[in-house]
Amino acid sequence: MLEEKHHFKAWLYLSPALALLLVFTFYPIFNAFYLAFLYNFDYMQRTAEGMTFTTEGINLFHNFRRTLQDDLFIRALINTLIIVFVSVPVSVIISLLLSVWLNSIKRFQGFFQTIFFLPYVTNAIAIGMAFAVIFHREYGLINMILTSVFGMEEGLNWLGRVSVDESTPAIRAWFQRYLNLPMLSLMVFITWSGLAFKIMVFLSGLQSIDKQYYDAARVDATPKSRVFRRITIPLLSPMIAYITITSFIGAFKEYTAIVGMFGIDLGPHGDANRLITIVGLVYKSLNEMDSVGAMSRAASAAIILFMMTLVLTLFNMYVSKKRVHY
């Protein structure tokens, strides 16, 4: 009796949160799966020719297959993977080194902490615009340094359109298509704007490590690099795992950085969608709402993204179970 009362109360207290989750999280997830398996869904008419698995002669993964055959999706997929697997490790390592350095200095620590933390409280679009100026071909800071300090004759066209020369060997063409100057600029921006939060987490982690471990290591004549590898990194590993997992998830969803730097064309002028990501692609599908099946393809793209994120997160968690010391 008492037990039941408690259950009732628990559900009552949870209900506001559950209602919100239901409306804004669970329903959209369910709906995305539903859309992805509709056949020839017409969003304008709200009609479909049945589900893919009930329609004769139609593959269960009809929408997924069409998505994967779409060149733009492949480009979005590759761009996303590049952002995930390059920017995350780079920014985790840089922020780790910066935090250790910040933690070790005595003077100006607060000053530098503030500097590194500023991006966190600044609007991403605003920072993106600032970076667009920094990378500007004629007035940009980077090109100014390249020409005046490194004596280059002409600055690089960091944010300019990419032209792919089809006659070049396949590998070089691939680089021209994907690992080009705009992508490099974007990556610098993403890495930099992700540093603040990571540094904050790492720094608080470092400060909570008992100083006696370092005293003990010192008495035992432990070289600095070994202290870092054998003591700091393992004791910080829960934070490193947390940051890595959340950064991977965040990077899979990257979109705002590209809008901030390149505008809603998601690419340099005259080269729209050069830097499109999966989320960018899904978002752009809204423009094609009136074409039959477009919503279903967008939903399938979202589900592909979800699956990739899920697999990588599970892998991350598996690795950290083995390697992380709690």
């Binding site: 006696q212 471990y213 005293d215 003990a216 010192r218 008495v219 590993s237 010391h325």
Partner: peptide
């Protein structure tokens, strides 16, 4: 002389054993 060159063994009040090893 820095601690590492003094040839001392030190046992801390709360031992300071490396928990991950």
């Amino acid at each position: 002389v820095p601690p590492e060159d003094r040839g001392i063994g030190l046992v801390f009040q709360n031992y300071a054993l490396y928990p991950h090893m």
